[in-house]
Amino acid sequence: DESNKPILLPNESQSFERSVQLLDQIPSYDTHKIAVLYVGEGQSNSELAILSNEHGSYRYTEFLTGLGRLIELKDCQPDKVYLGGLDVCGEDGQFTYCWHDDIMQAVFHIATLMPTKDVDKHRCDKKRHLGNDFVSIVYNDSGEDFKLGTIKGQFNFVHVIVTPLDYECNLVSLQCRKDMEGLVDTSVAKIVSDRNLPFVARQMALHANMASQVHHSRSNPTDIYPSKWIARLRHIKRLRQRICEEAAYSNPSLPLVHPPSHSKAPAQTPAEPTPGYEVGQRKRLISSVEDFTE
């Protein structure tokens, strides 16, 4: 099969070098950035008060330690540790928490760990991170309901609301924008112990962030949302095809390698009803078989 044979790379090609550099910018793992907010007593309706908090309760602090690993920003190499735009020179604080497994990295933009500057009256330095995160974990210690939209931002799609209760338990629920209701189930609340709260809140936030990324990708319907490693695979396959075309153009005697095509017509299947918005969006999480067989 010609399409699977190794090909020689061009010795000097600026377009090839640019493509390789672009490939280096696509990590081999999925990345997520999640905002974390603490809401104190009497702050449920005040964005400024929430963003001005420099610490929270003892249970909130224990919750943070379970979310991930504490890292010092100045020691991080952005090409190895995903920071979601946090500055490593102290502009966004000294520490944050991050978490990773074999296929993804997540960083938490924690408002109480970011510096509260006197010259920044409206807390814009914090909002440029927190307001651009799709998902926020809100530790609501106010005793009042927290409403979506209290923290203004164009991309605040989903809130994971943590409400501490007695007996070391917590109520965990989801809020989302109306255009996200087909992807996020907000109907079920959970009672979770303090011990298990970081794991549950983190998983709910990661799932909500993946759904938000799919939702946000609708602005470019021709580019369905893939995982990062599938995006790398697609980029490599496009690069291979372009090299083959350039080689055939410079030397017409060489065969032009095309991806294999299936001449056999697909079997006719009964027509199915058109899937609704929710089903269609969830299918976009699934990769096409052509990603692996071309």
Rank of each mutant, 00 (worst) to 15 (best):
1 D>E: 12
5 K>P: 15
9 L>Y: 09
9 L>S: 12
11 N>H: 13
15 S>K: 07
15 S>E: 14
19 S>P: 05
20 V>D: 09
21 Q>E: 11
22 L>A: 15
24 D>P: 04
25 Q>N: 11
26 I>L: 12
30 D>A: 04
32 H>R: 01
32 H>E: 02
33 K>H: 15
34 I>A: 01
35 A>P: 02
35 A>M: 04
36 V>M: 01
36 V>Y: 00
38 Y>I: 00
41 E>I: 04
43 Q>L: 01
47 E>C: 01
48 L>A: 12
48 L>E: 13
51 L>K: 03
52 S>I: 01
55 H>E: 09
58 Y>R: 08
60 Y>I: 00
61 T>I: 04
62 E>G: 04
63 F>D: 00
64 L>W: 01
67 L>W: 00
67 L>I: 03
68 G>E: 03
69 R>I: 06
72 E>R: 08
74 K>N: 12
78 P>R: 10
83 L>Y: 14
87 D>I: 01
87 D>P: 08
90 G>C: 07
93 G>R: 14
101 D>V: 00
102 D>M: 05
103 I>N: 13
104 M>H: 12
104 M>E: 15
106 A>G: 03
107 V>M: 05
112 T>E: 02
118 D>E: 12
120 D>T: 10
120 D>Q: 10
126 K>E: 04
126 K>W: 04
127 K>Q: 10
135 V>T: 03
136 S>T: 13
138 V>E: 00
138 V>Q: 00
139 Y>Q: 00
141 D>T: 01
146 F>Y: 12
149 G>Y: 03
150 T>A: 05
150 T>P: 03
151 I>S: 02
151 I>N: 02
152 K>N: 14
154 Q>T: 15
155 F>E: 08
155 F>D: 08
157 F>E: 06
158 V>W: 01
160 V>Y: 00
162 V>K: 00
163 T>F: 02
164 P>S: 00
164 P>G: 00
168 E>K: 05
175 Q>N: 05
176 C>T: 07
184 V>K: 02
187 S>G: 10
189 A>P: 13
190 K>V: 15
191 I>W: 05
192 V>R: 01
193 S>W: 01
196 N>I: 01
196 N>Y: 04
198 P>D: 00
199 F>I: 04
203 Q>Y: 02
204 M>A: 07
204 M>T: 05
205 A>W: 01
206 L>K: 00
208 A>D: 01
212 S>N: 01
213 Q>L: 07
213 Q>K: 12
214 V>R: 02
216 H>V: 07
216 H>I: 09
217 S>T: 11
218 R>W: 07
219 S>R: 11
220 N>T: 09
221 P>V: 05
224 I>L: 05
225 Y>A: 11
226 P>H: 04
227 S>D: 07
230 I>Q: 09
231 A>E: 15
232 R>W: 06
232 R>E: 11
233 L>V: 05
234 R>I: 03
234 R>Q: 06
235 H>A: 10
239 L>C: 07
240 R>H: 11
241 Q>L: 06
247 A>K: 06
249 Y>T: 09
250 S>D: 09
250 S>V: 11
252 P>Q: 10
253 S>Q: 14
253 S>A: 11
255 P>S: 10
260 P>R: 08
262 H>S: 14
262 H>Y: 08
264 K>I: 10
264 K>T: 15
265 A>G: 11
266 P>V: 11
270 P>A: 12
270 P>R: 09
270 P>M: 11
271 A>R: 09
271 A>H: 11
272 E>F: 07
273 P>L: 11
276 G>E: 09
279 V>T: 13
280 G>D: 12
281 Q>G: 13
283 K>V: 08
284 R>N: 15
289 V>K: 14
292 F>R: 14
293 T>S: 14
